[in-house]
């Protein structure tokens, strides 16, 4: 079957088998390998992408056919104009990753969280990320990074400097 999706703002049309899972479609049909495959059974969250702007989904547990006509944001879509997304910058600044394998899922789950709750407290962040596994960091710095990104996103724009 033929599907049309918009991924990171770019439209794509591809023929897929109905049984093609979204994560394999993104990685193999579109070459967007930023989205990882981990447990492949909906447990670990490394494959999380964002559907229609604010819904985090585990792309190993969704058929590409179900995304027909929808918009998908993957980790590759976070950078804007060559500048890291505040979440990415915060993960960098706070050392919110070690091996990095879980990071795309952490970023995309956090991205959807901040769309719904721009100012989550620490328990809300830990709860939101409870379906995303990290085997390196112990989560401390991931939580800090999301807090930093939320604070930055909510900060008022800097005053223009008087000239």
């Amino acid at each position: 079957m033929n599907i049309s999706v918009t991924v990171n703002g770019k439209p794509y049309q591809r023929d897929v088998e109905p049984r093609t899972l979204l994560v394999y479609f993104l990685r193999e049909a579109l070459g967007l390998t930023g989205t990882h495959v981990g447990c492949d059974t909906s447990s670990c969250g490394v494959c999380v992408v964002v559907l229609d702007g604010d819904r985090a989904v585990k792309s190993c547990t969704m058929f590409a056919a179900m995304a027909d006509g929808h918009e998908i944001t993957t980790v590759e879509g976070l950078v804007q104009g060559g500048k890291l997304h505040p979440l990415q910058q915060a993960f960098w600044d706070c050392h919110g990753l070690q091996c990095g394998y879980c990071t795309p899922g952490m970023l995309m789950t956090s991205y959807a969280l901040l769309k719904h709750q721009p100012n989550p407290d620490e328990p809300a962040i830990r709860e939101a990320l409870s379906g995303n596994l990290c085997r390196c960091t112990g989560y401390q710095n991931i939580v800090k990074a999301v807090q930093q990104a939320a604070a930055e996103t909510n900060a008022p724009a800097p005053e223009p400097v008087a000239t």
Partner: peptide, 9 residues
Amino acid sequence: VADPVVRQS
């Protein structure tokens, strides 16, 4: 139910 991401679907 499950985890917060699964609950979004």
